[in-house]
Design a protein around this nucleic acid. Sequence first.
DNA 1: ATGGTTGCCACGCAA
Length: 255
Amino acid sequence: MKLASWNVNSLNVRLPHLLQWLADAAPNVIGLQETKLEDARFPAEAIREAGYHVVYAGQKTYNGVALLAREPLTDVVTDIPGLDDPQRRIIAATIGDLRVVNLYVVNGKAVGDEKYAYKLEWLARVRDYLEQQAAQYPKLAVMGDFNIAPDDRDVHDAAAWGEDILCSPPERAALQAILDLGLSDSYRQFETEGGHFSWWDYRQAGFRRNMGLRIDLILISAALAQGATAATIDREPRTWERPSDHTPVLLEYSV
DNA sequence: ATGGTTGCCACGCAA
């Protein structure tokens, strides 16, 4: 099984990239973030023609998430208890014996901003939902754009970034509270060095200079970690013309 | 400290 997560930063613009990458990488499941499309405009037919079932929760201009899978998606959830939120940032579904929760975590703008407070509150409510999901589903994957770099290895210049947004201790504590539910950052099962990123700012030639962050994560339960065979970041789509600022991250497992 | 770039939408906001 190959799972993937990709913040496409507008599915309207990035649909050709998505279709190309699905053909190249052939993931069994992929979570998308920042589709930026109302459901009525979602390109479901093109995705079905590419051989994927798809569920989605979108809105105009901002946010929007989707889950694609080779097999049918059931028990779809787009709103969670305690989180009365018009922003479309979460979609969960079951594929066979696998439960997948796909997140587009709030960016937060800046430490202390009202969006930052919303981010921490949002993460707390998601943690509570994941606690319940982890109890219900032994094989649980929580993927998405977390908008949090787990530790300094995940930051191109940790000293310069300091404790700014995406790296502040409260954000990292919120991520840790989710990991404490019995989940692990699958990438770190296979790569312990720093310098591997999933997002590079469009500005200042961030990608060319590898000035990035690793903020796109696939967290997995122990049952999945046991069978994990590879966790990778595919930088190639970031080299394509008119790319998303994020590139896909992957996890492969057997059984 | 600020601004750089992209997307959406048609101005400035969000990232």
